[in-house]
Nucleic acid binder design. Sequence first.
DNA 1: AAGCAAATTGGTAGCGCTGCCAAAAAAACC
DNA 2: GGTTTTTTTGGCAGCGCTACCAATTTGCTT
Lengths: 332, 332
Amino acid sequence: MEFKHQPTVTLAEVAEAAGVGESTVSRVLRNHGSFSGKTRERVMAAVERLGYVPNRIAGTLASTGSRLVAFVIPSLSNIVFPDVLRGASAVLEENRYQAVFSVTDYDPGKEEALAAAMLAWRPAAVMLAGCEHTEGTVKMLRASGCRVVELLDLDGDALDIAVGFSNRAAGRESAAFLLKRGYRRIGYVGHDLNRDTRAGKRFSSFCETLDGHDTPLVAHEILAGASSVENGRLGLERLLARTTDLDAVYFSNDDMALGGYFHCLAEGIAIPSKLAIFGYNGLDIGRATPQPLSTIRTPRVATGEIAAQLVVANAPPQAVDLGFELIEGATA
Amino acid sequence: MEFKHQPTVTLAEVAEAAGVGESTVSRVLRNHGSFSGKTRERVMAAVERLGYVPNRIAGTLASTGSRLVAFVIPSLSNIVFPDVLRGASAVLEENRYQAVFSVTDYDPGKEEALAAAMLAWRPAAVMLAGCEHTEGTVKMLRASGCRVVELLDLDGDALDIAVGFSNRAAGRESAAFLLKRGYRRIGYVGHDLNRDTRAGKRFSSFCETLDGHDTPLVAHEILAGASSVENGRLGLERLLARTTDLDAVYFSNDDMALGGYFHCLAEGIAIPSKLAIFGYNGLDIGRATPQPLSTIRTPRVATGEIAAQLVVANAPPQAVDLGFELIEGATA
DNA sequence: AAGCAAATTGGTAGCGCTGCCAAAAAAACC
DNA sequence: GGTTTTTTTGGCAGCGCTACCAATTTGCTT
């Protein structure tokens, strides 16, 4: 079956029906410029009668700037990104901007291709995760003339606007916390770090901090693929099978940490006396477990909100550090 | 600081630089119509040299149909919707379609407003959650002439295409399962059902099924606000405070059920011997808990994929029932 | 070599709207 | 009453691209 376009009502038809000029209709509809109350009523009546829906494609082409904001994000499975989108979309909707997105699967090459596709829509801004991009992506974004916002990672040079926090600092503080608590035989369970560079940064800073205190990481287990509760569980199981006397494990994020937590529950490993668990992200679910998860809470929704606000306000280039909060919890 | 548009390279400039006509460049770039290999090379060289990025706004306006697909979803916090988006976006990207979205917060009025805003982009399709919409929304979508896809709920009349499963059937099967297992004093913990009509349908069918077996629901606890692990925990706590001899509790979804599960763990309530727990959605996390969660797994990603495929293929109006799977788990 | 079909190419009229400018109408002034 | 302002209005040229058509070139055939 072929799809047939309904005959569309155009602005010209509204103008005709209302007995006014096209530009008058345009002014009334955008509430911009001046027109009399009587004209307004006639136009609105015609709009209502004909069921006119303005065409923003045409409007955007005719005017200079678009009200599209493009998101190029690594994943929708990792709740981090829906959270950012949620914060941003609320602000954008208030300001009559429209969010567009596509998903890279943590693949920089795909990021480049998708960013290019996005630029074809001439968005007001492109929002990307992190600050590592291919040379091609950077060049293209620079040349595009549209605003670029890099989200969730401040450890690097920003192209234009950056909103988030330092993953390195998060890794450091996590290590410092575990050390302060007296843990000395520390392990790590993580997911694919080549793809998730932010998790990689946390891990390397975590290790550096441990090294700096002459308490190097005892063992680590890296699982291929994305982070998940099941992978966290599996990772801890494998790590413990190899390494007998760990007293704490740092996980690449809360999903993984919850998996580890469940493993301990299932195996009767006492937390934190026998084994401490520390995560990252501060998901709500970690607060409802029998023992609240020790973790770092990141301002994901706020990151989206602030990013959107800066774009809407057309703010100058800047890096906004939203920080994070260490949650002591009861698992470490 | 004011944002300044970079001087944009247009198709006409590429044509000039390549020494060919505009339509030739257009044909080469879209790989549509015929042109010689030599011409192709010259055009591509000029594109490369000038860093030309096609303008899809202009392209869409000039051609008839757009390659935008608009999603109007209730929430991004409830993982259900990111899952659907994920499935859909993969298929759409393969077919060079672009996903656009906005979030209604389960508010039908907002849905109407956002759907209207979406139609202004003249999308190829609008995708909505469920099949309950305001009269205004329905009228507008009907008049728009674009494809309409209703997701995740088959219990109602579809406007055009519907993809999902029956929430009523899910409620019925959940009840039948608990009865089959021998539970007779059954309670319910849910979140705001006025807004989440799909959860409401599951609940009412669940109750009807219980009634049909002369085992009416013993008690229920409905919490205001969205579903969350914390609310599930709180809900079960309140329910048990009021009602002493329940032997099973049905939750509005897995998030809520996990909260209940954690409550039992924390309070030392034996599962399922003392109290059984049953959820809905089949989240991955429910498979990694010490006792796998008894629940119904819904095909969320597949819903998005199928929906996108039907739109891309411009399929005729139809309702596609993807079904669901009851997971026995170990909590009921 | 002429004749015809097929492949390739360029010109140009819109797509529906906004922005600019000048014209017309209304209001305010002396 | 006749200006001078101010407000309101309509006309129309694009925005950058695609679709259509006609013109040109190429390749074959006889």
